[in-house]
């Protein structure tokens, strides 16, 4: 069991972070904590992609010598990194919009507690 976890450490870490993030988003009453959970979830997915691109003993995908033969196994797969740059941008945009929402909700209701917000809306 322990060897299994150690051998695939990034995947277990990703799974743990996803569960923590989902728990925060669903179970926490404070909207700020929901937002923090959302960021943990997004980070977990970024970690998953980056971990998947790793290769022991490989380097950045740049040809240092002119005319050298490029062999795929010498390089880390750069595509997941590029994808995650985009995913980070998407995540930042969502976080920004969510923070703007929270500021407006706080101004309007004077609280960020989900239960009391729902109560105020129903009234």
């Amino acid at each position: 069991m322990i060897e299994e976890i150690a051998a695939r450490f990034p995947y277990w870490a990703t799974a743990a972070l996803i569960v923590i993030g989902l728990y925060g988003m669903i179970a926490k009453r404070s909207l700020v904590k929901k937002l923090i959970g959302m960021n943990i979830l997004q980070s977990a997915i970024i970690l998953f992609f980056i971990a998947g691109s790793l290769r022991e003993g490989a380097s950045v995908p740049i040809l240092f010598e002119e005319g050298a033969v490029a062999r795929a196994e010498d390089f880390v797969n750069p595509l997941p990194h590029v994808l995650m740059l985009t995913a980070i941008v998407v995540g930042v945009a969502i976080t920004g919009v969510a923070l703007a929402f929270l500021v407006r909700i706080r101004e309007e209701f004077g609280t960020l507690d989900e239960e009391s917000l729902l109560e105020q809306v129903r009234r």
Binding site: I105, L117, L118, V121
Partner: peptide
């Protein structure tokens, strides 16, 4: 309006889970 704000934030949280 007020109800839309709460609905919008809850939509954002659940929608982001879907996207993730």
């Amino acid at each position: 309006g007020r109800a839309g704000m709460v609905a919008g934030f809850r939509y954002l949280v659940l929608g982001t889970i879907g996207g993730a």
